[in-house]
């Protein structure tokens, strides 16, 4: 069974002149444990799609199955979300931020603590639990945000340009870190990015979307071996895969 199964999903934002068609006839299926990256021009509906996968917005038509059951509302036990801005609550420490989803479900305090500390360790923030978000660097904030997304152990993790606000070096490190975390947890990841290098470096498969209304116009399997290394970026295969995605994105309609 697929971890995510999207069937003929379309979306129209209501508005002036009959509305804005944002997504058109999207069908896709993601196998459990796969790392899928979505790329596409700005405004093509990537965030919209992710919001629907997360149950944060209702699509106009079509269905989304996660773990075989439809997604109609946010369900953190099935889907964790990491946003572009870490969107941590500034009034909570990293530890409290991480255990927030558990607190919402009324998990006992000791259990909550244990899980949250475990997650902070996993993302490389051992000993930073007492810090407030303003005391963390951008990369560290995103680490907490990932820990928070994973704390309920959902099979699926959705990430909307999580490293877009970081500087180039931090971004590379974070990508590498994410792969490490992913290989330990074996989550299904759907990752949105504008960086083609990041896409090829991270993905098992890259989905390319067309300009608005967003459709999936290409699926590119990235058959680079794992674990990925920085050296691979300099290889011919890497360059060719990158080039192929670029051709698809800039292709005139």
């Amino acid at each position: 069974m697929s971890a995510i199964e999207v069937d003929r999903l379309s979306h129209v934002y209501s508005g002036a002149e009959g509305g804005v068609p944002a997504l058109q006839d999207i069908s896709l299926s993601v196998e459990p444990g796969k790392f899928v990256v979505i790329v596409g021009p700005s405004g093509c509906g990537k965030t919209s799609l992710l919001m629907m996968l997360a149950g944060l917005r209702h699509q106009s038509s079509g269905t989304i199955l996660c773990d075989g059951r439809p997604i109609t509302a946010p369900d953190p036990s099935r889907v964790g979300v990491v946003f572009q801005e870490a969107s941590l609550f500034p009034w909570l420490t990293s530890l409290d931020n991480t255990e927030f989803p558990l607190a919402l479900r009324g998990t006992p305090r000791a259990e909550r603590r244990r899980r949250a500390e475990e997650m902070l360790n996993l993302v490389g923030l051992k000993g930073f639990g007492a810090r407030y978000p303003h005391e963390l660097s951008g990369g560290m904030k995103q680490r907490v945000s990932i820990a928070r997304g994973l704390v309920q152990d959902p099979p699926v993790l959705l990430m909307d340009e999580p490293f877009a606000a970081l500087d180039e070096q931090t971004r590379m490190t974070m990508g590498h870190e994410l792969l490490r975390i992913w290989s330990k947890t074996r989550k299904t990841v759907v990752f949105i990015t504008h960086s083609l290098t990041e896409a090829v470096y991270l993905a098992d498969e890259v989905l390319v979307m067309s300009p608005r209304p967003g459709r999936i116009i290409d699926r590119i399997t990235i058959d680079l071996p794992r674990p990925r290394t920085y050296e691979m970026m300099a290889t011919d295969t890497f360059g060719k895969l990158r080039e192929r995605i670029w051709q698809q994105i800039r292709k005139p309609e």
Binding site: P74, P76, S77, V81, F83, S87, W91, F100, P101, L104
Partner: peptide, 25 residues
């Protein structure tokens, strides 16, 4: 609004959003 969105994605009900996000924020 990003705070509310994050809280919703973690399954916060409306009363939880009020008590745990809107009031502290």
């Amino acid at each position: 609004p990003q705070y509310i969105l994050a809280a919703r994605s973690m399954g916060a009900t409306l009363p939880q959003q009020i008590a745990r996000v809107i009031i502290p924020a």
